[in-house]
Design a binder for these strands. Structure first.
Lengths: 224, 224
DNA sequence: CACTTTTTTGACCGTTTCTTGACCTTTATG
DNA sequence: CATAAAGGTCAAGAAACGGTCAAAAAAGTG
């Protein structure tokens, strides 16, 4: 699906120019000429907003703050002249970047891409979702249920990650211990029992569901 | 346009694994199995090079130097084991980071991103970053809150810049130390504790907010 | 050089997490 | 049903971690 860009500028000509250019680059574009329209178009869930802060009759900074309260996508200011102060003010209001008019279209594209890329990377962070809505964010090393984080310690997390990455496989404690703690860990594989207990407890408390299954005599397995 | 990564490793399986993973993350990937191929592929202008320094029949350090003479992108060593000596030698030869096998793919991605971000900033001449109203002026190496400068020392600033540029990623102290102080800094990563404390104190005093989060057992993270 | 500022180190303490061992419960099997 | 083996629970001590402070070491400055 194409990225969606919301352009907010009072000059119809510029709006059109930008819209055409960006559509030509494959983006889905919406345009707005005043604050009301902008707020109304937030429902389109834009991936990026280009906002002229000098629209007549509109307090750009105020608008920026309102947008920020409603959505979290990057906001790039378009502005005629920018003084250090404006820059600072804009960023303070929650903008992410600014670009001064006149700007080249390729410059604009470059900035948009940079922001999208940054977000994209974060979004794509290879989160694995277990069958029942439990989200394990590998990069962030956390576990989420209905948007809420379920806190786990380092070891607990490592065990979860291991099981969920190898779901449907059964591991006995010895093997899990070697694979998670490392071959050279000189400890006792019975710790696994304890970790499974702690994990089960926290997960049950938070979700009301069972995720780790015991296969008698064989080991544990993450239920798909 | 996607970032381009050049992978140099003699093991075809590993090459394939890495290539597939990184392509899945949206990178353009080239692979090379020996020194000649590597040099030949420099023409693709990679943004980052992953280099196994222990390729049989290849003097990895020599190769690194040759690469360095030709291009300036970051070079990350992939290496089985790394001794202090190896580390120093590799760095002398022009490497920027190392990662010891076996490593997790998410770990690798995180490192790649950290390097790319650093570069991206320079390429785009991005000069200002903001986070929840806090403004970091990269050019001026200053931090502002509501127009007022919050004074930080050189090191303090470097730590802030690093964290904010890699916001939402967790870094343990060891890694932060290596990436900020440099791999060849022979010191003790516990300094990080102290800097985090100082930074938190100054930021809290000036803004009343918490920006650096502690993730127990895992490290620190800049709250977005 | 004397003085200030910054960086680094070491020690201490409270907290969290990890691990262990003892004991209890369930399951398979003769 | 008795028994052994596997799994589950609990509490407590050990170890690791993070926060804080003060002071030493190093770097910068007039």
């Amino acid at each position: 699906m194409a990225y969606r860009i919301l352009i907010a500028d009072d000059e119809p000509m510029l709006r059109k120019l930008l819209a055409e250019h960006l559509e030509g680059e494959g983006y889905a574009v919406n345009t707005a000429g005043d604050g009301g329209e902008v707020m109304g178009l937030l429902g389109t869930r834009p991936d990026i907003i280009l906002l002229d802060i000098n629209m007549p009759g509109v307090d750009g900074l105020r608008l920026c703050r309102d947008i920020r309260d409603a959505v979290s996508c990057p906001i790039i200011f378009l502005t005629a002249r920018i003084s250090e102060e404006d820059k600072v003010m804009g960023l303070r209001a929650g903008g992410d970047d600014y670009i001064t008019k006149p700007f080249s279209l390729s410059e604009l594209s470059a900035r948009i891409e940079a922001h999208l890329r940054r977000d994209e990377r974060q979004r794509r962070e290879e989160s694995i979702i277990s069958s029942r809505g439990l989200i394990v964010d590998l990069r962030g090393r956390r576990v989420l249920w209905e948007g809420q984080e379920i806190r786990f310690t380092k070891r607990e997390y490592e065990v979860i990650e291991f099981l969920i990455m190898n779901r449907n496989q059964i591991f006995d404690r010895e093997r899990m211990y070697e694979l998670i703690w490392g071959l050279d860990a000189g400890g006792d594989s019975r710790v696994i029992k304890e970790y499974v207990r702690k994990i089960r407890q926290k997960l049950l408390e938070a979700t009301g569901k069972e995720f780790i299954e015991t296969v008698w005599g064989m080991g544990y397995r993450w239920k798909r």
